[in-house]
Design a protein around this nucleic acid. Structure first.
Lengths: 255, 255
DNA sequence: CCGACCGTTCGATTATCCCGAATTTTATGT
DNA sequence: ACATAAAATTCGGGATAATCGAACGGTCGG
């Protein structure tokens, strides 16, 4: 799936993780199914499952294995590690109510944008915005807003690591264009995503900082073109998001 | 921490998991800190971290390691595996608004009660009710409600595996008392937790089923004694929870 | 009641992980 | 700015521990 030609680290742990990923992909599975799909003996898979089960990384119902609660617990810890992350939950909901558009809070981790909260009113998010999913920073509204606040050096590193893949024809794909875009964002105080990672998907994002230079994450609202691109709409929406972020930053500084 | 005198399974995977747990416990750490705490050479720990990092189970900022987004993604999958789980989110929020008390949705996994959603209005939950945390089934409101719906055989297995630990003086600690309690719950249609796992903490729980005998999980509302124990209050609250569950079951059957 | 399938257990072989020392990088104090 | 210290990371040999295949036992369907 991903580019794994690299040294690969500890093989045992890697295999255990591969099992977890398969379980995720298929919403659980039985031993033989996994064994066949990974082209390994059943006994090996069973060993991994038994170990993972001991720590509740997987649970067993009859002869069916699924992802377990310990993953939920650890994953949730990712969202509560930082006071700002916890506080962001409320503000994401509030932003949704004010803007009337799908709202998200995302942070930068390992050079990608990770969604920590999404509020959409209707049933829970599209696949591409599900919790923990990682999107590129350079072609999302939150991502660009965050990049604009990071020191030049970090931006460099991130681009080096992940490149600037063009996911639609609107994507920024070269270094200079990105630099220009980032300073434009710093000027006007918000970032715009014009269908740069998904067709028809527009968004406005603003980064939140603890103090200048110390980025916590970013908020954004997304919707179809007509809801965002109209100049008046855009200015109005941008103000809404910025106001939310300002309040967020204030409250965070008092927490 | 937990009773790990058992065979222990794959040692490498177990160590990797131990690293993750330490990271969770300390909200991230550096290599030497982990190495010392686990009484293992730094190089070994580094190997584990490198492997976990490759899969984004941990992320590295400078020389500081923390839990990574992939855990959030997998953990979230636990909550979205089942249509009922997804649907429960809305209903937990709705229940909170109707009852005015902390509301939770929990499911049975591996013989324990696992919290999938908690809504409390204020800042996110007390430690004992954080997402993914596992509580006993026999001394919580949701837990008992769920047990009451499970076949006798499963109840037997669960009690055998986890015992009936008494966490307060009100806890049920013997098999007969539990059986009696469960049939009382089946009669009146809801379970009550009278400070059985935490002092001062009372709750009312109702199990939700896909069809008779097929339990999805359970909802509960919790609060201080005066808000729950008063006979009128109790009846009123129980009706609120039951109504919510009824609607939930209806909507689930249509989904 | 019998047969086939699947999950689980067990022991030997060898690949692989652990370790400790060497190296490079980062931080600190003068 | 330099020297010193501490930490992270890399590396290779040796021994442990994971992998594998076969045998066992349980379960479902005919």
């Amino acid at each position: 799936m991903t580019d794994d030609d690299e040294p690969a680290g500890l093989k045992t742990t890697a295999t255990s993780i591969a099992v977890l990923k398969l379980l995720e992909e298929h919403d659980g599975a039985r031993v033989s199914e996994l064994a066949e799909r990974m082209d390994k003996p059943k006994s090996t898979i069973h060993g991994h499952l038994a170990t993972l089960k001991r720590e509740q990384f997987v649970v067993q119902e009859g002869d069916f294995y699924s992802l377990g609660p310990e993953l939920l617990r650890l994953g949730n810890k990712v969202r509560t590690r930082d006071t700002g992350y916890v506080l962001a939950r409320t503000f994401t909901e509030r932003l949704f109510e004010e803007a009337g558009l799908r709202s998200v809070f995302a942070v930068e981790m390992g050079g990608r944008a990770v969604f920590l909260y999404t509020v959409s009113g209707e049933k829970m998010g599209w696949a591409h915005e599900q919790l923990g999913n990682r999107l590129y920073l350079h072609n999302t509204a939150v991502g660009k807003a965050i990049l604009a606040e990071l020191p030049e050096r970090r931006v460099e590193q991130i681009v080096e690591r992940w490149g600037l893949p063009g996911e639609t024809e609107n994507s920024i794909t070269d270094r200079e264009a990105l630099t220009a875009e980032l300073s434009r964002i710093r000027e006007r105080g918000y970032a715009v995503n014009r269908a740069e990672n998904f067709d028809e998907l527009y968004g406005i994002g603003v980064a939140a900082t603890r103090k200048p230079g110390d980025v916590v994450g970013g908020f954004s609202v997304t919707g179809p073109a007509h809801a965002v691109t109209d100049p008046d709409q855009e200015a109005e929406l941008a103000r809404t998001v910025r106001d939310a972020v300002t309040e967020f930053e204030l409250e965070l500084s008092l927490a």
